[in-house]
Design a protein around this nucleic acid. Sequence first.
DNA 1: CTGAAAGCGCTTACAG
DNA 2: CTGAAAGCGCTTACAG
Lengths: 344, 344
Amino acid sequence: MRKVIISDVAKNANVSKSTVSQYLNKRYEYMGVDTKRRIEKSIKELGFQANIVARSLKVKQTSTIGVIVANILHDFSTKVIRAIEDACNKENFHIIVCNADDDPVKEKQYIEMLIAKQVDGLIIFPTGGNYELYSEMTEKGFPLVFIDRLVKGLAVDSVLLDNKHAMELAVKHLVDKGHSKIGIVTTSLLRNVTPRVERVSGFVETMNKQGLEVNNEWIKGLEIQEIQNGLKQMLSQNPSPTAIIAGNDLTMMEILRYAVKNNLNIPKDFALIGVDELAFADIFTPSLSTISQPAFKMGNAAATLLLNKINKSNKTEPSIHRFRGELKVGKSTIYSRYSKRVNS
Amino acid sequence: MRKVIISDVAKNANVSKSTVSQYLNKRYEYMGVDTKRRIEKSIKELGFQANIVARSLKVKQTSTIGVIVANILHDFSTKVIRAIEDACNKENFHIIVCNADDDPVKEKQYIEMLIAKQVDGLIIFPTGGNYELYSEMTEKGFPLVFIDRLVKGLAVDSVLLDNKHAMELAVKHLVDKGHSKIGIVTTSLLRNVTPRVERVSGFVETMNKQGLEVNNEWIKGLEIQEIQNGLKQMLSQNPSPTAIIAGNDLTMMEILRYAVKNNLNIPKDFALIGVDELAFADIFTPSLSTISQPAFKMGNAAATLLLNKINKSNKTEPSIHRFRGELKVGKSTIYSRYSKRVNS
DNA sequence: CTGAAAGCGCTTACAG
DNA sequence: CTGAAAGCGCTTACAG
């Protein structure tokens, strides 16, 4: 069945394609009221639906933006995507989401594909492995916003957590609960991924400020599949930490898995707090203490920044937009048998 | 900065646009080896990247399919999407994902938008509220595959769980564990959503076959926010069920929430099994028994069906493709203080 | 082996 | 208020 196109409508309504096009673009002042009615009627009769691809080619705008997440498995990514979609919907923009799987090669393919598809802009959780490509885009003035992660040496609008503040919240909370031997576990630090690096350094900084000893054996940056081993090693130290900070949700899951497998009780054997809320935080035993990221606000901010760039209304210098996390206290950090040791 | 287009390459390589186009489409037999090299070089030099929008307009194929999920909050949806994406990637297709939020109005908007964007086909978790639109699409021969849900009276290739079998697994497992008073809770049955309806009827059927009494007060189909109340009511009956089946993951979460809030012990106060795996099933206390859906296989099947339709290689009659779930035994259904009552 | 021409379905100056 | 014409960046018969 042949699709009905604009010339069919024009013929049916006895006007030119130009006028139908004006109608489609709601420029009703360019036509008589009767003409308008005829077009309206023909469109309905024929079930005409304008071809967006043709329109995009002509107007050189697709009203579509691309979103490339480094790792869709993080709950944070999913929330951010939803926020971006909401913000875009309001402006009649659509989004195409791609998952780079933390692989710079895939990321590059996706960026190139999305640009070939003529997206009007890109929001990226950068893997960090495509410096040249990123910088090429910024040089060309291609609308670009980074989220969650920075790329060193590149001036791009970036939206991310105030990681230092998040670590202050976490460490201080644990100190309040009587802990002084605190460890941190996060995913691999090898690729210098911003939140991981900043959380570890923020952790160290706060520990120092609190006058607490930082033990290098209690700081682990490991691939997910290495975390079980890393925990074993960390907890077999003497002394070993009485409290652990999980750098993100996936790490938190691994720590919980370790505790279950080894019959360890949280918070009795060690207290636990993580960055990123988990869906089951409040129904878990114990309920989980977390520093939650304002994912919705952050996604919204990224989308707004990008849309402003696309509409050229934003000519300001790129800057870094930091958002503060919030401490949610659960029972995974309540007073434990270790706590009392603190001041003894 | 002006984008480089095919004519720039043609000029630079001293050939016609036609030949460059042949090159882009890898029809190298249509050019001399030297010509090919010159084009190659020019493309690299100029950083040319073909405009997919223009290509799509001409070839009337976008190599993009749309995926509309009824509710992205279900983990099953997320898994299916990933499977679809993987399958599409292999065929160089891209996907645009939309979330209808269980709202037929939104679903309709998305379908129309995606068609206007000229997607080559659609995979839908149908809300069920757009019968006319669905049937219009099938009449026009638009490539369409349903997943998770059927639409009555419409012959569309559909991929879904063998819900009856899933309920057999669940009920029989509970009976094995000594239960005879079994209830089921799922999300609202008002809109006749396939998996919910089929799971309830499959439950009833199996109960009957097992010679067990079905108590209507122990069957709840409720909006998520009503589930807490429904559980309270169900569990305050006398007698009340000693085991509950959760119709899906979100329902399972609500039941767990209810147990925590009311200090109920699973499986001591009631045993619990649900359809859909939960990410934290094995680290939860107790670990959760579930009937898992082969989400990856199902997503893959849906994508394969659709891609075959798009390539016209599939001229077979639409049919329903059922997949069997798998029982994963956790501790939420182990022997409980109620179990012994069964045969007494 | 290569190129000129037509056309995909729209939009937009421009002329009347 | 309305229409003819050109053009967006490709692809594809077709001619040579």
